[in-house]
Nucleic acid binder design. Structure first.
Lengths: 238, 238
DNA sequence: CCAAGATTGGATCGTCAATCCAAGACGCTA
DNA sequence: TAGCGTCTTGGATTGACGATCCAATCTTGG
């Protein structure tokens, strides 16, 4: 006995499409983190209903994956070609790192589904560059996997940002990109936690706390890549 | 107008405690994956109500984190002491890998919150062993971070298992531990997907598909660890 | 024996993803 | 232009979930 013939909002004139929906999803994710992507928020932003969205998108997973694919594809498209294979590898890895740094939710999504098309080009680039570095075929597979895993490990950790909850958008007055400060505050908190540990029982972690305070995510990431590259060099075909 | 004085189920005799709840959560997670841990399932298994659980546990996050801490603590407690620092490092990493392989949900949880107490001992062990490997203090921080990130990257990927949904428990007749076969089938699926790619455009990935079919997660993980250890060796104080 | 505090059970609330159906718009044919 | 079928859209609805709340029950100390 519900009014099925109630008045409806006027139909939209501009056509809805998968691209439009994915872009709106990316915007929501960038603004409020992973938890900000809800179908309700999407319908509000697009001024439409649930049915219209589900007509173009099968699933919320589908939507999240498509958003990640989109961001990564745009990043890899603008990749720079470096001189040597070694520099090129660093460049590719850094490109992915920067992309995930700018869109933390992508990191979580990628490490959840690393076999998706988004990472195919990345994986392919790594494989070719390892070939150029004279890594024998058998070891190339393991090496590429290790590098991808390392990058994704860093990505997942970087994705773990504090707050970013729905309430943040209400609280913050400026509503600017508060990514940098959020990460810094977060690291400071962990560092304090670690520095309060018993130096006798946890000498290394206790000391690492001070490093953590002054460290730079990007620099440490690159240091890790360099360690990996140094390890790769030992696999070289002689 | 609701009967507030309805008959209640008899009160439990054995006391509920945080330990009992965490253990039940671990059982649920091991049986059905991350999505199987719901408060409803917990109340059914423990034959209790929501209030009783929330009296001992602040949050669902708290519960998940406690479960992960518990599993990891048990693993690290039984760690074997190896001869040299290099072998010890491999052993510690392998221990973590095996634990995550046995409890895939732990991997996802750890890579989501790597600063939790669960990983402190692991981090500490790595740091000390790097010291034993004569890695200078400044580089130790970066090296430990790289290694931990690599392990967590693998962990997150291993956590990404197919199915494991709530319906699985209904469908499967045997209800045994279908972990191994699930992972194998999953890898086979990805391999097929990759092998269908254009060999001209994706020569490396196309070829990696065959490797993927015959590869062993554990072996490849160890190969990655060795690459990082080889790279770390170049940081040695001479 | 009784009051105060600790513990327990479950009704209830708000939110979410997902389904479903009818209402509009569009295009094609005659 | 009129009619009809298909594509697209809006939103009511469903069912599951995390979390809160409160009354009922047990335990403990005096």
């Amino acid at each position: 006995m519900v009014k099925r013939t109630a008045k409806r909002a006027p139909r939209r004139t501009d056509g809805l499409s998968r691209e439009v929906i994915v872009q709106a999803a990316i915007d929501l994710l960038d603004e409020g983190g992973e938890s900000a992507l809800t179908l309700r928020a999407l319908t509000l932003r697009l001024r439409t209903g649930y049915g219209a969205i589900y007509h173009h998108v099968t699933d919320k997973n589908d939507l999240l994956a498509a958003a990640a694919d989109d961001v990564i594809a745009r990043v890899l498209a603008g990749a720079v070609v470096a001189a040597g294979p070694r520099e090129a590898l660093r460049g590719v890895a850094l490109g992915l790192f920067d992309a995930i740094d700018a869109h933390p939710w992508v990191g979580a999504e990628l490490s959840r589904q690393p076999w998706r098309p988004a990472l195919l080009d990345f994986y392919e680039s790594v494989g070719r560059l390892l070939h150029a570095l004279a890594v024998p075929e058998r070891a190339r597979f393991d090496a590429a996997g290790a590098l991808v895993n390392y990058v994704l490990g860093v990505a997942a950790q970087n994705a773990a940002r504090p707050g970013r909850g729905p309430k943040d958008t209400e609280r913050s007055t400026g509503r600017g990109t508060d990514q940098g400060t959020g990460r810094a505050d977060f690291l400071a908190g962990v560092a304090e936690q670690w520095s309060e540990l018993d130096p006798g029982r946890y000498p290394f972690v206790h000391e690492a706390a001070t490093r953590l305070r002054e460290h730079d995510d990007r620099d440490q990431f690159l240091a890790g890549v360099d360690i990996f590259l140094a390890g790769i060099a030992t696999l070289r075909r002689t």
